[in-house]
Simulated scan of single mutants.
Amino acid sequence: MGNQLLIKSVGIVALGLTLAHAEITINDIDKLVNDIKQERIGLTKQDIAKAKDPFIYLGGKYSRVLAGKSKKRHYRFTLTAIINDRVKLNRKWYSLNQTIHGYKISKVGKNYALLTRGNEKVRVYMRHKKSKNIKLFVK
Rank of each mutant, 00 (worst) to 15 (best):
I105W: 04
L58D: 08
A49M: 13
R91F: 08
W93D: 08
I48T: 09
L43Q: 14
D30I: 06
K104G: 01
Q46M: 09
S131Q: 11
K50D: 14
G16E: 13
D53V: 03
N3L: 14
I48K: 12
R73E: 14
K31E: 14
L136R: 03
K135D: 15
D35F: 02
F55I: 03
K132N: 15
V138G: 07
G109D: 05
N34G: 09
K130Y: 11
E23R: 15
N97V: 00
R127C: 03
S63K: 02
K69N: 10
F137H: 07
V138M: 13
L15F: 07
L5C: 01
N27S: 09
D30E: 14
G102D: 09
N3P: 04
K92I: 04
K50T: 08
K135E: 14
T99P: 00
H74K: 13
K45E: 01
L43G: 04
Y57D: 01
H128M: 10
I83T: 06
L66T: 05
N119M: 09
K52Y: 07
L17R: 07
V65K: 05
N90H: 06
D28C: 02
Q98G: 01
T80P: 02
N34A: 12
K129A: 01
Y112W: 06
L79D: 00
I56K: 11
M1F: 05
K72D: 11
G59A: 05
N97K: 07
I56Y: 08
R123K: 15
I82L: 10
L115H: 03
V122E: 10
K107A: 11
I83K: 04
T80L: 09
D53L: 02
K8H: 13
F137W: 07
K139D: 00
R73F: 15
G2E: 14
R76C: 05
R40D: 11
N133F: 13
K110Y: 09
L58P: 04
Y57R: 00
Y94A: 04
K31L: 14
K110I: 12
I26M: 09
L17N: 12
K135H: 11
L96P: 00
I36Q: 10
H101D: 11
G16L: 15
R127N: 11
I12W: 02
G16A: 09
V33S: 08
G118E: 08
D47C: 02
K45P: 00
V10K: 10
Y112L: 08
D85N: 07
I26C: 05
H74M: 11
Q38S: 13
L136D: 03
F55Q: 01
L89K: 05
E23N: 14
G102E: 11
S95V: 02
V108Y: 06
A14M: 12
H21K: 12
I83V: 15
G102C: 08
A67K: 13
F55H: 03
K139S: 02
L58S: 05
K88W: 10
L79G: 03
I83Y: 04
K129R: 15
D53I: 06
T44E: 13
L89C: 08
A67T: 06
N3I: 08
N90V: 00
Q38C: 06
V124F: 07
H101Y: 13
Y75Q: 03
L89N: 06
K110E: 09
V87A: 08
I134R: 08
K130I: 02
T80S: 14
G11I: 12
V10E: 12
N27H: 07
H101F: 11
